[in-house]
């Protein structure tokens, strides 16, 4: 009972961290928010490893902490321009973003979750699949972060957040998720490496300029 409460608490903190990232203007605090989110996901993994007595989840937690928490944060931070604490994105309308984000969440909860996910069985609480809701919400927020911003750094953070949602789903749902984390890690690492090259070229994207003939 108490552990279920802690799992819920960690999941809700992850959700709040996603909102924190969504509401940030400064890119540096966004990256730090992603760090906090990864640490929280690692904590969820460690907790479930303790509960299930599973070595896989323990290794997975350590992998998340090292690769996602430290390595990606380090790579993103070193790619930032020199006066990094001053780099921010203009034209971020927080109330508008939050309201649209809430609409996403309402759709996620009441439509997709109630139709598709209510029959699945998670690790932590058999018979109650409500923890599976949080990965889905995180996934939606990652997508929305990518679509709502123009800065390349923000879009990378949004992608990482989306992958965080997948990893969280793997933690909550499957007993052997290391293969997923490995593939997702390679995915993210490749993306971060490639996009850090791109950010040298251009740090913001105007609307659809690439596709203009």
């Amino acid at each position: 009972m108490i552990y279920d409460g802690i799992v819920y608490l960690i999941s809700a903190s992850i959700l709040v961290s996603a909102f924190y990232i969504q509401g940030q203007r400064y890119i540096m605090s966004m990256i730090r928010g992603q760090l906090v989110q990864s640490i929280l996901i690692a904590a969820a993994s460690f907790l479930l490893a303790y509960l299930e007595n599973s070595l896989d989840l323990l290794i997975l937690g350590a992998l998340i902490l090292i690769l996602r928490g430290i390595l990606i944060t380090y790579m993103l931070e070193t790619r930032m321009p020199r006066r990094k604490s001053y780099v921010f994105e203009e034209g971020v309308n927080v109330p508008y973003l939050f309201l649209v984000d809430l609409v996403f969440i309402v759709i996620a909860v009441f439509i997709i979750y109630s139709i598709i996910f209510s029959t699945l069985v998670p690790i932590s609480q058999p018979g109650n699949s409500s923890t599976l809701l949080f990965p889905l919400l995180l996934f939606f927020q990652g997508i929305f972060l990518i679509t709502s911003r123009r800065s390349t750094y923000t879009q990378i953070v949004g992608y990482v957040e989306e992958e965080n949602g997948l990893v969280l789903l793997a933690i909550f749902l499957l007993p052997v998720p290391i293969i997923i984390e490995a593939s997702v890690f390679l995915d993210v690492l490749a993306l971060v490496v490639i996009s850090s090259v791109i950010t040298v070229e251009k740090s913001t994207h105007e609307r659809m300029e690439e596709l203009r003939g």
Binding site: G23, V94, P95, L102, I105
Partner: peptide
């Protein structure tokens, strides 16, 4: 202030 209230509204909807 609107940002602040948006956070409060987000918490209440959550």
């Amino acid at each position: 202030i609107l940002d602040y209230l948006a956070v409060a509204f987000t918490f209440s909807i959550l």
